[in-house]
Computed example of a mutant assay.
Amino acid sequence: MPTLNLKTDPLKILVTGAAGFIGFHLIKALQAFDHQIVGIDNLNDYYDPQLKLERLKVLGLELGSEGQALNTQARLACGNLSFIKLDLADRAGIAQLFEQEKFDLVVNLGAQAGVRYSIQNPHAYVDSNLVGFVNILEGCRQTQVKHLVYASSSSVYGMNSKQPFSTEDRVDYPISLYAATKKSNELMAHTYSHLYGLPTTGLRFFTVYGPYGRPDMAYFSFTQKILKGESIDVFNNGIMQRDFTYIDDIIEGVMRVMERIPAAQESELTQAHAPYKIYNIGNNQPVTLRRFITAIETACGQKAQENLLPMQPGDVPITYADVDDLIVDTGFKPSTSIEEGIGKFMEWYKRYYV
Rank of each mutant, 00 (worst) to 15 (best):
T3L: 14
L4M: 08
L6N: 11
L11H: 11
L14M: 09
T16V: 05
G17Q: 05
A19V: 14
G23M: 08
L26C: 12
I27E: 04
I27P: 09
H35F: 06
I37K: 10
V38S: 14
N42M: 09
Y47E: 07
Y47S: 10
L51T: 02
L51A: 04
L53A: 05
E54V: 01
R55F: 13
R55M: 04
K57F: 13
K57M: 05
L59D: 12
L59S: 10
G64E: 04
G64V: 01
E66N: 13
E66G: 11
Q68V: 11
A69I: 06
A69T: 10
A69W: 10
N71A: 14
T72Y: 15
Q73W: 13
A74H: 12
L76I: 11
C78P: 05
G79Y: 00
G79H: 01
N80W: 00
S82L: 03
F83A: 02
K85E: 08
D87I: 06
A89T: 12
A89G: 06
G93R: 09
Q96R: 15
V106Y: 03
V107A: 10
Q112N: 08
V115N: 02
Y117Q: 12
Q120T: 15
P122E: 01
P122K: 00
A124W: 03
F133I: 02
G139E: 07
R141G: 15
H147D: 14
M159K: 03
P164A: 11
E168P: 12
D169W: 08
V171E: 07
I175W: 07
L177E: 03
L177D: 02
T181G: 04
L187Y: 06
L187W: 08
M188S: 12
S193N: 07
Y196V: 07
L198Y: 08
L198G: 15
T201L: 01
F205C: 00
F205H: 03
Y209V: 07
G210Q: 05
P211T: 06
Y212C: 11
G213D: 10
P215K: 09
P215A: 04
A218L: 07
Y219V: 03
F220I: 02
Q224N: 09
Q224G: 04
S231E: 14
D233C: 12
I239K: 05
Q241C: 04
Q241V: 05
R242H: 01
T245E: 14
I247C: 11
D248V: 13
G253A: 10
M255S: 14
M258C: 15
I261E: 13
E266Q: 14
E266S: 03
E266V: 05
H273K: 13
P275C: 05
Y276C: 11
I278W: 02
I278H: 03
Y279D: 01
G282T: 09
G282H: 10
N283G: 02
N284M: 15
Q285Y: 14
Q285D: 06
T288S: 14
F292I: 10
I296Y: 05
E297K: 04
E297T: 12
T298E: 08
K303P: 05
A304W: 00
Q305I: 11
I318A: 01
I318V: 03
D322A: 08
D322E: 12
D322P: 15
I327K: 13
D329C: 06
T330F: 02
F332D: 02
F332N: 08
S335M: 06
S337C: 04
S337I: 07
E340H: 11
E340V: 07
G341Y: 08
I342G: 07
G343C: 06
W348H: 14
R351G: 13
V354K: 14
V354W: 14
